[in-house]
Nucleic acid binder design. Structure first.
Lengths: 343, 343
DNA sequence: CAGTTTCAGTAAAACGATTTAATGATCCAT
DNA sequence: ATGGATCATTAAATCGTTTTACTGAAACTG
């Protein structure tokens, strides 16, 4: 419905251009795509004809013939509750924005797939050349879906599976950075509030946390919270912990939605932050920044991550290069009021 | 590239399904689309064949035949500097997220068009059934582009032109709310820091501001700042104003990137917020929330706006309903530290 | 019962590009 | 001058759907 008005003349096609330039449609196609050589002079005439007639290629027709859609998608795998609400603008959107820009530079469009119940529905709507998948869980249904349909996919995060192209997020470094900081800030009894779903980030954070606590001779206290209804779950868990006999003075809560819940529970109990308890989270998004005090968090350089993922995906689609294990900048600690008094 | 492996059998097509179900391709098409009646029993056989063969329609082929792409786009019209940087997650992303969700429920995909130099490039990449355009300027090039290509378009914001379907943002109400609040907070010498580009929001804010100041018998002081390099521009403008003889105690700065600049200038001059100066902005995004103190701003109900815009656009594409002038909830004031001490 | 409507289905014609195989030129080296 | 190469071009096939125009058969109608 892109072009014709009710009383419309027919769409301008490659045939019209060919006629006007005095060549065959095939030659026009070659001139446009540059796939074969066409004579200087001929090309000039074709360009003129295109300009005169205002020709615009029909992308659907091209796509049908070439099998390419010029489209990639960004999927979020997180359950709705985590990604939605006030921070619908989270991780997904930040990555999507940069990826869209990068994609457009290669004449590709980026379609946005927010968390939905039935990801398969996407294939009813739009053809895809490839997909970027954010932080899939262990047996992520979206990942299965993409593999089943043989859609070239780049994962952002970390999969156990080495067979899947991946822009690696260094969860270990993140954990170290945040725990170091909590210790520096004087915390000596540190809680980890972790998502219960099998997901690489959850596992690695727990691992690092255990190791660091062991090394420092501090107790390990992990609260597992379901990622569905993350905020309320975390709030309840912390509330219960406060009632318990053993006090704590630091909380590492990687998932920002849970951090909101943690802060609410602390406030409700009359505990001060960072006085009584220091709190740190992972993703420096809307939630982290709009807490009071704002939460210490990590700059994950998501724009660089997104660009790397896009580049990787495009080369994967072209089929050419095997895979460059692109390096992205290390996470950087953003100190904020939730864990520091000075600055 | 959606399906075939190197040693691949050919794609399963509607012809294969037809053969297996013992009918003609046309009937299969009718069964799938529901456009014509097909017998109960026949439909059953077709469904079975589809399931057995794992048939998935080729969307490019369908699109070529029907002229529909099942795709809509969200365009941001703002100059890069405003929408990019730390708040790439702004307005655009918030609207896009909700619109994507709404679109998918109608089997439409949403492609994301971040601000780019050459918006026309989009048409090299993907066909569009329609577009949502955010807050276009007066002679917005993107809007011209969309009209020239006869792409059904819904504007979010306000155009002078009544001929264009529009989800109206009530700039007047926004201005009133913010100015009321500044007055309530005791401000008596209020600056307006406004974008210089001809844009409905800029004009209306200025209009409301003038009217309110006149009514209250207060002086009108408008600083016009270019939207290119908004942050630094606003900072410089405020710095200059501070040096000037006439003090001020309130700033209305609708564009959030400029608000960041304003805050920086105030900080640099040693003025306290909200003690010496109250500051309010319009869009309650990342920037507003991560200032210190966080900025009083408006909840614009962008999710509702996005859903309304999507619905409007879809009906516009269907061609059926003329246009429902959908109503969106009124803006709501979010009081924060930049203008209030109590709460 | 002849005449009209429905009904369910079919065969074939689009849709608009790209790609394949074939065709003359033109050029080069023997 | 003959037999290749190389070059620019073309005619025709092709991609996988949807849609159009037709067709019998069955079901009404009066």
């Amino acid at each position: 419905m892109n072009d014709q008005s009710p009383n419309a003349k027919k769409r301008v096609t490659v045939v019209d251009v060919a006629r006007r330039a005095g060549v065959s449609p095939g030659t026009v196609s070659n001139a446009i795509s540059g796939k074969r050589k066409v004579d200087q002079e001929t090309r000039r005439r074709i360009d003129a004809a295109i300009a005169d007639l205002g020709y615009m290629p029909n992308l659907a027709a091209r796509g049908m013939r070439t099998g390419r859609a010029n489209t990639i998608a960004v999927f979020s795998s997180m359950p709705t509750a985590v990604a939605a609400g006030a921070s619908k603008l989270g991780f997904l959107m930040e990555v999507a924005a940069s990826a869209a820009e990068a994609a457009l530079q290669h004449n590709m469009a980026l379609v946005l797939i927010p968390p939905i119940e039935d990801p398969a529905a996407v294939f009813q709507a739009t053809p895809l050349d490839g997909a970027i998948l954010l932080e899939p869980a262990s047996n992520d249904p979206v990942l299965s879906l993409l593999r089943a349909r043989a859609v070239p996919t780049v994962v952002v995060g970390d999969t156990g599976d080495a067979g899947i192209p991946c822009i690696r997020l260094d969860y270990r470094a993140m954990g170290d950075l945040l725990i170091d900081h909590l210790l520096d800030a004087g915390a000596r009894s540190i809680l980890l509030v972790a998502g219960s779903r099998a997901r690489r980030s959850n596992e690695t954070f727990a691992e690092v946390y255990r190791a660091r606590m062991a090394r420092a001779g501090l107790p390990v206290r992990i609260l597992e919270v379901s990622e569905i209804n993350a905020e309320a779950g975390a709030e309840a868990a912390i509330a219960a912990e406060i009632v318990g006999a053993v006090p704590f003075d630091g909380v590492l809560v990687p998932i920002d939605a849970m951090a909101t819940g943690v802060m609410a529970a602390l406030r409700a109990a009359g505990l001060t932050v960072p006085g009584d308890v220091r709190v740190v989270t992972r993703y420096d998004g809307l939630r982290a920044r709009s807490e009071s005090p704002p939460l210490t968090a990590l700059d994950l350089h998501l724009d660089a991550v997104a660009k790397a993922a896009t580049a990787e995906l495009l080369s994967l689609i072209e089929g050419s290069s095997p895979v460059s294990s692109s390096l992205v900048p290390a996470p950087y600690l953003r100190r904020r009021g939730s864990s520091t008094v000075g600055d």
